[in-house]
Design a protein around this nucleic acid. Structure first.
Length: 670
RNA sequence: GCCGGGAUAGCUCAGCUGGCAGAGCAGCCGCCUUGUAAGCGGCAGGUCAGGGGUUCGAAUCCCCUUCCCGGCUCCA
């Protein structure tokens, strides 16, 4: 007697009859969909194990290993293999969570001593053994009590189970248990029949042998559940891929990203350095970096002036009373440098001067310097303001996270009814700026950040609502897609944050636009309206680059050091073929210099092959080769950093072309 | 700040269980006078991050400090 059958379908409408109780893998085969390296499947859109039984009626879709979802499952499975290897080698280890993450996975362990590089090698070896043993990933559904029994000596697992049992949502990143559902456990079945269980939602590879390629990368500390009052666990990071080739390609990409590191390029291209003598998070800019930075500053000054901003200059330190009034000492003190105590007064009282972490109180003082009329609004005060923030030593990272940096900072003082229009103007400005610096796709993420918990006592509910609404209206008018980040606002007001994505796909936070109705109250700001009465202005804080230093670093990494010509420290190098061409070379450079272009002559004692290599490696946009032919004809041989050489270009033609390219801020050639 | 790993010439790195500090590149000098990604030779360059300790003897082992790297927390 034939077994009863059920019907399954494929995503394109394929249909097949399979015996009741058949596995997903068999059903996919019957549908003709089990082709290539399939690691898991989707049933009606939900990821399921290949050896899960089909119910009948579902739509099945194969998930290949070389897809995001396929790799996700693969990495999750390798995380289990690693955890088993660790518990085999360190029986006392308590394991916490081990999810897949972008490009890899990690697992957190509570162990008596930190893992050493030698430990990682041993764990890797044990993982290879486990993979060779072809251990099945066997799914079981347990009651809460059964699960607590299985993990009797695993306190972190028990905590997750108990939380799930209580119906509290668990950390999604943990991926280990779904609230309310039965507790699912995956058991790796060893050759001797014993099992290594892990709490897990799944799904997983069918067996460990399906792991094609992995590598353990590093050990790091991580707080349990990410809270710094919890114990610190030892986290092992690794990566896993669908093939050895894909793993190798990934490691190669990491190497390429490392070469783009602005700290490495900054040194190699002689742009800037971080002298140990200076201190953590503090950079010095060399002349070549200074050229780029000055081009950025010139851009900022010109564009702000054109858009009705007025330049102001303010000092780097201010008295404690100012920071009390502004609220910084109450809400921001842990990020501020300690004060300079000075000027002892009668009675032993001293004044404390704090280096500024923000420019806003100073711009408020400019506003407050006299009575303001509604006719002056909006008043847009602009400053390249250098600020100092006492970042925790562990977070400092080159220019991307420095302790001293310069913002292209503005504070706009306006009437409440002007806020939306001003915010729109800032958004337009921002989009223009991204385009001019080569991020032609615009922002990759725009978010409205709303009132944070720490601001519960700051301002009124109505004030926050009005400010958030103004930003919402400006965003809607911009036509940009945007999302809301609840509770991520500044302590004085909601904000819009813009992110851009660089050439290798990394997202960076740049621009921030913040509406503030609190500082005007704290400083009792006012203007005289048309009605002759006193009114309270609103403030908008905004920085478009965010930080000049940080934006410079992002540009450097985005362009891998090959700046667009308008920003390049040296725009053209003249390479004379022999000594007798040096005089003409200097004429060429002088002609370019007379047009405000940055040109140098390499009249060193090297062969021209060596010179060309040097400047190619140095990312100079154009090399101008001059020999007998060029001297004779008054031309240059133009060797662009990318693309074909053009011989016999009249000097005047090249000069005009280069001047145009710079004036129009052309992006670099691919 | 917390966890781990580091620091040898300007850069990249070698220097083994403690026993005379090295190489390549960069720099400087000289030769070569060059037609499209590294010509040849020479010279110079070090408080082995700083301080303390163990030892007959420390770049090497131990402790502290500084700085860096990778994470966690945080953020422009």
């Amino acid at each position: 007697m034939a077994a009863p059958t059920v019907t399954v379908a494929g995503p394109a409408g394929e249909r097949a009859e399979v015996p009741a109780g058949a596995t997903v893998a068999d059903a996919l085969a019957e549908l003709g969909l089990r082709k290539g390296q399939i690691v898991v499947a989707k049933a009606d859109g939900e990821l399921v194990d290949l050896d899960a039984p089909v119910d009948g009626g579902e739509v099945l879709e194969p998930v290949p290993a070389d897809t995001d979802e396929g790799r996700h499952v693969l990495r999750h499975s390798v995380a289990h293999v690693m955890a088993q290897a660790v518990t085999d080698l360190f029986p006392e280890a308590k394991f916490a969570i081990g999810p897949p993450v972008a490009d890899g996975f990690y697992y957190d362990f509570d162990v008596d001593r930190p893992f050493t590089p030698e430990d990682l090698a041993a764990i890797t070896d044990r993982m290879h053994e486990i993979i060779r043993e072809n251990q099945a990933f066997r799914r079981r559904e347990l009651s809460v009590d059964e699960a607590l029994e299985v993990f009797a000596d695993q306190p972190y697992k028990r905590e997750i189970i108990e939380q799930a049992a209580a119906g509290e949502s668990t950390d999604e990143a943990a991926g280990d248990a779904a609230p309310g559902a039965a507790i699912s456990v995956y058991e790796n079945v060893r050759p001797d029949g014993t099992v290594w269980p892990d709490l897990c939602r799944g799904p997983h590879l069918p067996t460990t042998k399906w792991v094609p390629a992995f590598e353990l990368q590093r050990v790091a500390g991580a707080y349990w559940r990410g809270r710094n009052d919890n114990p610190m666990l030892q986290r092992i990071y690794g990566t896993a891929w669908e093939s050895k080739k894909a793993l190798k390609a990934h490691l190669h990409r990491l190497e390429e990203a490392r070469k783009r590191d602005h700290r490495v390029l900054g040194r190699d291209l002689d742009l800037l350095s971080f002298p140990e003598e200076l201190g953590t998070g503090l950079a010095v800019w060399h002349p070549r970096g200074g050229v780029v930075r000055q081009a950025m500053e010139d851009y900022a000054r010109d564009e702000h002036a054109r858009r009705g901003y007025e330049s102001v200059y303010t000092p780097h330190i201010g008295k404690s009373h100012l920071w009390e009034t502004s609220g910084h000492l109450e809400f921001y003190a842990e990020s501020m440098y300690p004060p300079i105590e000075m000027d002892e007064r009668a009675g032993g009282h001293t004044d404390a001067y704090y280096p500024k972490p923000m420019n806003c109180p100073f711009h408020v003082l400019v506003y407050k310097s006299r009575t303001r009329s509604y006719r002056e609004l909006p008043l847009r005060l602009f400053e390249l303001g250098t600020v100092y923030r006492y970042e925790l030593s562990g977070v400092v990272h080159g220019l991307l996270r420095a302790r001293g940096f310069t913002q292209d900072d503005s504070h706009l003082f306006c009437a409440p009814e002007q806020v939306v229009e001003e915010a729109q103007g800032i958004i337009d400005f921002t989009l223009d700026l991204y385009r001019d610096f080569g991020f032609t796709d615009g922002p990759s993420r725009v978010a409205l950040s709303t009132r944070p918990e720490k601001a519960a006592t700051v301002g009124s509910d109505e004030g926050w609502a009005a400010a958030e609404d103004a930003l919402r209206r400006a965003l809607d008018a911009s036509g940009l897609e945007w999302v809301t980040d609840e509770g991520e606002g500044a302590f004085y007001g909601p904000k819009i944050d813009f992110q851009i994505t660089d050439a290798i796909g990394r997202a960076w936070q740049l621009t921030t636009v913040q509406v503030d109705f609190n500082l005007p109250e704290r400083f009792d700001l006012s203007y005289v309206g048309a009605d002759g009465a006193q009114h309270r202005p609103m403030m908008i804080h905004r920085a478009l680059f965010g930080s000049l230093d940080r934006f410079f670093a992002i540009l450097l990494e985005h362009y891998a050091g090959a700046f667009p010509t308008w920003l390049a420290p040296v725009q053209a190098v003249v390479v004379p073929i022999a000594d007798r061409h040096a005089a003409y070379g200097h004429e060429v450079a002088a002609a370019l210099g007379a047009r405000g272009l940055r040109a140098e002559v390499d009249d060193s004692d090297e062969t021209m092959g060596a010179k060309i290599r040097k400047h190619q490696v140095g990312k100079v946009p154009y090399q101008l080769i001059v020999g007998d032919d060029e001297v004779e004809a008054g031309t240059v041989a133009v060797r662009p950093r990318v693309g074909e050489q053009r011989k016999g270009v009249p000097l005047a033609t090249f000069t005009d072309d280069l001047a145009t390219e710079v004036a129009e801020r052309h992006p670099p050639q691919a």
